[in-house]
Amino acid sequence: MSDSYSVLPLTPEVRTWLSSEGIVPPAIDGKPITLQELKGIVASLPGIFAKWGNGPEFLDGAVSSVSGMNTSIIVGNPGSDSEPCEFHFRGGESMLIETVVGGIAQLAGPQVIYAHSGGFTKVIHGATSK
C-alpha cells in the first residue's frame, strides 16, 4: 500500500457518511485517542515495534513487525500527550495498519480507516473488523 490512510473514531457524523457509502456501521461510537495512548497501544502489540521521531509540527513513527511489514504513522499537530490527536498512516502493509487500528479499537471503540484516494474504507472494532 503506498496510499495514505486516515483513522477516525466512529461517531454519528462518520456513521452517516458510511451509511451514504453503503457501509453498515455498528451502533457503538468510538472515541479519539491521545498521543500517549497511541504510543502505548503500538508498544503493547506483540511483534510490533515503533521508533518515534520528533518534529515541531508533525510527529512520525516508523512502525515495523517481526514478519517484515512496515508503515509510518504521521501525527499532525501532536500537542500534549494527553490531548486527542489526529493521525494517519503513510504507505505500508494493510495487515499491519489494521492490526494497529485493531489495538486502538480495543481501547477506544470502533475506528474507521479510509484511503485518501477514496479506494478503501473499513470499520475496525476490537479484534475483529467488518
Rank of each mutant, 00 (worst) to 15 (best):
P46W: 04
E21S: 13
L38G: 00
C85K: 08
M69D: 03
H125E: 11
V42S: 01
S72K: 14
I28E: 14
L18A: 01
T99V: 05
I73C: 00
G92H: 01
G103D: 02
E37P: 00
V66A: 07
K122P: 02
V100M: 04
I33Q: 05
A115H: 01
G40C: 06
P84L: 14
Q111Y: 09
L45Y: 06
T99I: 04
D29E: 09
P25K: 04
P32D: 09
S44E: 14
A27S: 12
M69F: 10
F120Y: 15
V63D: 00
I124R: 07
L59D: 04
Y114C: 00
G79T: 12
K31D: 03
G119E: 04
S72Y: 13
G40R: 13
S2A: 11
D81M: 11
V7F: 01
S72I: 14
W52H: 15
G22W: 09
E57H: 04
G109K: 05
A27M: 06
K31Q: 09
S129G: 08
G47N: 13
A108Y: 07
K130L: 10
S44M: 11
G53P: 05
E93V: 08
S94R: 12
L8M: 12
V66C: 05
L35A: 12
G109R: 05
Y114W: 06
F120Q: 03
G79L: 03
P46T: 08
S2G: 11
S67K: 15
S64T: 12
H88D: 03
S6T: 13
S4H: 05
E37R: 10
L59P: 05
E98Y: 03
Q111P: 02
S94A: 07
W52R: 14
R15D: 02
P84E: 09
G92N: 00
A108H: 07
S117F: 10
G30S: 03
E21P: 11
I73W: 01
W17T: 06
T128R: 15
L107F: 08
L96F: 08
V101Y: 03
E83I: 03
N54W: 15
S67C: 06
E86Q: 11
S80Q: 08
A62I: 12
K130W: 11
P84Y: 08
G53Q: 12
G103H: 07
I23K: 07
I23P: 01
V42I: 15
L18K: 03
L107N: 08
L59T: 14
P78C: 13
G61H: 02
H116Q: 06
S2Y: 10
P84G: 08
P78G: 08
I104T: 10
P110A: 02
V66H: 06
P26N: 04
I113H: 00
V75Y: 01
G47Q: 10
G47M: 07
H116F: 08
L96A: 07
A115C: 02
S2L: 12
K39R: 12
S94N: 06
P26H: 05
F120A: 01
P110D: 01
V7I: 15
I41V: 14
L8D: 01
I124T: 13
P110T: 11
G79M: 02
S4Y: 08
H125A: 06
S44I: 13
I104S: 01
E37K: 09
A27L: 07
S82Q: 02
S67P: 02
L45N: 06
A27P: 02
P56H: 11
H88A: 05
G55I: 13
S94V: 04
K130S: 10
I41F: 11
G61A: 13
V66D: 04
F89K: 11
S65K: 06
V14I: 15
S129R: 14
